[in-house]
C-alpha cells in the first residue's frame, strides 16, 4: 500500500515539516513520484519496527480518543432504558431490584454487578442530593459492556440513601461504562444535566422514556464533549 506524506505524518505523529526534512536528509525510506513523495507501507513498518518507532496505523489511538468524545448521554440512556415503580427495601433492596430489572447486556453477571454496586455504596453514598443517586461500580466490570449505558430507575417509594443533603431518593441512574474515562465524561454530562431546573422538574413527574430522552437530547445539543455548556468560554 502507498502512503502520502500527510498520512505518514499522522501515523508517526510528526509535523509534516519534520517529515520533509527526514526525506531530504534520507532518514526515512521514500520514493519520489510525479506528485510528491510516496511511502511504501510495508517498508515503513519494517523501518519503524527496527528502530522502535511507534506507528499508529489508521490512527487507532486517535480514533479511540475521538470515539470517547462522541459518547452521548442520550445514546447511553437509550441503551440503559427506563424502568418505573421499582420496589425494594433500603439501598440494597432497590439496587437489587434495579439490577434485576434493567435491560443489561447479556454478558453481564447481575450478581457480580450487584455486589460491586454495594461495595461502592459502602465506600460512600452515590446519592448526590435532591433525591437523585447515581449508583455505579467502582471499577469497570471485567466483562463489561462495550458501550456505556445509563439505566434510569424511578422508585416506587422514597428511599433513604444516605445522600449528602439527607433528602430521600426517588430516582436512580445506574451507570455502566467500559472505561473510567468514559465514566467520567458521562458523569460530567449527567451532573450538568441534573443542575438544570426544568429537567429536575421533569424528573419529579417521572416521565416515560420517550419524554425523558427528548429532554436529555435537547439539553445535550448545547453541551460540549466534556459536559460543559458551550458558547460561554473563550477558546483561542
Amino acid at each position: 500500500m502507498y502512503l502520502t506524506i500527510d498520512q505518514v505524518s499522522k501515523w508517526l505523529n510528526l509535523p509534516v515539516n519534520t517529515l520533509q526534512r527526514w526525506v531530504r536528509q534520507g532518514k526515512i525510506p521514500v520514493y519520489k513520484s510525479d506528485n510528491g513523495y510516496v511511502f511504501l507501507e510495508r517498508e515503513l513498518k519494517d523501518w519503524a519496527d527496527s528502530r522502535g518507532i511507534f506507528l499508529t496505523p489508521k490512527q487507532e489511538a486517535r480514533d479511540k480518543a475521538d470515539r470517547l468524545r462522541d459518547f452521548r448521554l442520550t445514546d447511553a440512556m437509550k441503551k440503559g432504558g427506563t424502568i418505573h415503580e421499582v420496589k425494594g427495601e433500603g439501598v440494597s433492596g432497590v439496587l437489587k431490584a434495579v439490577v434485576q430489572a434493567a435491560p443489561l447486556d447479556r454478558r453481564i453477571d447481575r450478581d457480580v454487578l450487584f455486589r460491586r454496586l454495594i461495595e461502592r455504596e459502602e465506600l460512600s453514598s452515590t446519592g448526590i442530593g435532591e433525591g437523585i443517586a447515581i449508583p455505579h461500580p467502582r471499577f469497570p466490570l471485567a466483562d463489561g459492556p462495550e458501550e456505556p449505558s445509563i439505566t434510569t430507575a424511578f422508585l416506587d417509594s422514597l428511599v433513604d440513601y444516605g445522600s449528602i443533603d439527607g433528602v430521600p431518593v426517588f430516582v436512580l441512574f445506574l451507570m455502566l461504562s467500559p472505561s473510567p474515562k468514559v465514566h467520567l465524561t458521562l458523569l460530567g454530562k449527567l451532573s450538568h444535566l441534573l443542575k438544570d431546573a426544568s429537567f429536575k422538574r421533569l424528573l419529579k413527574q417521572r416521565p416515560v422514556e420517550q419524554d425523558l430522552l427528548a429532554a436529555v437530547e435537547a439539553t445535550e445539543i448545547n453541551m460540549d464533549p466534556a459536559g460543559r455548556v458551550s458558547g460561554s468560554s473563550h477558546v483561542g
Partner: peptide
C-alpha cells in the same frame, strides 16, 4: 517550528477569573 505545541488555550487579558475557571477545566 517543528516542536511547536499548540494545545495551550490562549486567554485574553481582560477575561474575568470566572471564565478562566471553565477554561482550566478544559
Amino acid at each position: 517550528l517543528e516542536l511547536l505545541e499548540k494545545d495551550c488555550v490562549v486567554v485574553s487579558e481582560d477575561m474575568r477569573l470566572r471564565d478562566m475557571i471553565s477554561i482550566i477545566q478544559q
